[in-house]
């Protein structure tokens, strides 16, 4: 199967970013969202970014659609809707009916088990995780998640497709947090523990991790950038996924900051204060 037409479901930040990547790689793109206003906004942001790159000629390959049934001719569909299992399952159920049996059906989930999304859906071997990092047009990594029922051949096709998009894919067995969100947990969680135990201050830890360790940003400045609520939700998700394994136990300090609404840069303050 030669991949020519790519469908993307969900025209939020990730969906629009993924659509841009696919356009830049020369694919016919069908961007699908139930909300026409969201689609129009996505087209606006994609257009602005492609103009900056002098690639606006690829916009002729962008098709905005509101019905999943219009994705029937796509060889690959990437789902990028909010992280709700039932919503994703309903979408894959419908995709399985409208798309051909040898299409690749991919989910950009960052925290839901691809095995659970695919369960009970016809031909689950074609369903895989395809996890982009934000912002999708810039970040080179895609985690290709192989679920319990995903096919090995289909996994290879997904890896090759990611490479065609100019990305560097890694192959990951379906497990909580995949690679990145799992292995990165101690960077935040242990730093929070060290602060909580009074061993070093937030500012000291950031200086130590950049100065002694060569990390580009300290764990607290980075949490402020990501959003402390987002970071806390990821930790909770991995912690639950591992059946409360103590290595992933969330931090009370972080929970209090989420409760207080001091979420980082986006609220003007988190571990540091931000003016403007």
């Amino acid at each position: 199967m030669e991949i020519k037409r790519v469908g993307i479901i969900g025209a939020g930040t990730m969906g629009a970013g993924i659509a841009q990547v696919c356009l830049q790689s020369g694919y016919q793109v069908f961007l699908c969202d139930a909300n026409q206003q969201v689609l129009d906004k996505a087209k606006g942001s994609i257009t602005a970014r492609l103009q900056k790159l002098n690639q606006e000629d690829t916009l002729s390959n962008l098709n905005l659609i509101t019905q999943i049934v219009d994705l029937a001719s796509c060889h690959v569909v990437i789902e990028a809707v909010p992280e709700r299992l039932e919503l994703k399952r309903a979408i894959f159920q419908e995709l399985a009916q409208v798309c051909s049996d040898d299409s690749l059906l991919l989910s950009n989930t960052s925290s839901i088990s691809i095995t659970e999304i695919a369960a009970g859906i016809p031909h689950p071997e074609r369903i895989l995780g395809f996890h982009f990092f934000n912002p999708a047009p810039v970040m080179p990594l895609v985690e290709v998640i192989v679920g319990y029922q995903s096919g090995q051949e289909e996994a290879e096709q997904a890896l090759q497709f990611a490479a065609k998009l100019g990305k560097k894919p890694v192959k990951v067995k379906d497990s909580p947090g995949f690679i990145v969100n799992r292995v990165a947990r101690p960077y935040y969680n242990e730093a929070l523990r060290i602060v909580g135990d009074g061993i070093a201050s937030v500012e000291q830890i950031d200086r130590i991790m950049t100065g002694a360790g060569g990390f580009k940003m300290g764990p607290f400045a980075l949490q402020d950038l990501i959003g402390i609520d987002i970071n806390f939700a990821t930790t909770q998700s991995v912690y639950q996924g591992f059946f409360q394994e103590s290595r992933f136990k969330p931090s009370r300090l972080q929970e209090r900051m989420v409760q207080a609404g001091t979420l980082g840069k986006k609220t003007g303050g988190g571990f540091y204060e931000y003016t403007n």
């Binding site: 990594l141 890694v170 067995k173």
Partner: peptide
């Protein structure tokens, strides 16, 4: 502790060593 977690992932065959390393370099800088 980051290294320890990467080794647990390796033990569980979540990914090959090269993919674990590439993921962390590209996904988290």
């Amino acid at each position: 502790l980051i290294i320890n977690e990467a080794i647990f992932a390796l033990i569980e065959r979540v990914a090959e060593p090269e993919d674990i390393d590439q993921g962390m370099k590209l996904g988290t800088n």
